[in-house]
Amino acid sequence: MINVLLWVFGALIIVTSAMSAVYSFRSRRTTDNRLRGLYSSRMNISMGLMLIFIALIQMFLFSGSSLRVVVGALFMMLGLFNLFAGMRNHSYFTRQQQ
Rank of each mutant, 00 (worst) to 15 (best):
T16S: 09
L35D: 09
S65A: 05
G48I: 01
M50I: 04
T31A: 15
F60R: 01
T16C: 04
T30Q: 07
T30D: 12
V22A: 06
R28S: 09
R28M: 08
F53C: 07
S20K: 14
F25V: 12
A55M: 00
F60G: 00
R68F: 01
S40K: 14
L56C: 02
S27Q: 13
S66I: 08
M19N: 09
G72P: 02
R28Y: 10
Q58C: 09
A55I: 01
S63W: 11
S65G: 05
N33V: 14
A18E: 03
M43G: 12
T31K: 15
L61E: 05
R42Y: 10
V15H: 09
F60M: 00
S20N: 10
L49M: 12
L67E: 04
G64K: 15
M50H: 14
R68L: 02
G72S: 02
R26W: 13
M59G: 01
R34C: 08
S46L: 04
I57R: 02
S17F: 15
M59S: 03
F53N: 06
L51E: 01
A18C: 08
I45A: 06
V69D: 02
T31N: 15
S20Y: 07
S66K: 11
Y39S: 06
L67Q: 04
A21E: 06
S46V: 07
I52F: 02
Y39E: 06
R34P: 01
S41R: 10
N44C: 11
S41L: 01
S17G: 15
V22T: 11
L67A: 07
F60E: 00
M43H: 14
G48Q: 04
S24Y: 11
N44I: 08
Q58N: 11
V22W: 08
V22E: 05
R28L: 05
M43Y: 13
A21N: 10
R36Q: 11
I54F: 10
A18D: 02
I54D: 01
L67M: 04
L35Y: 11
S65L: 05
L67S: 07
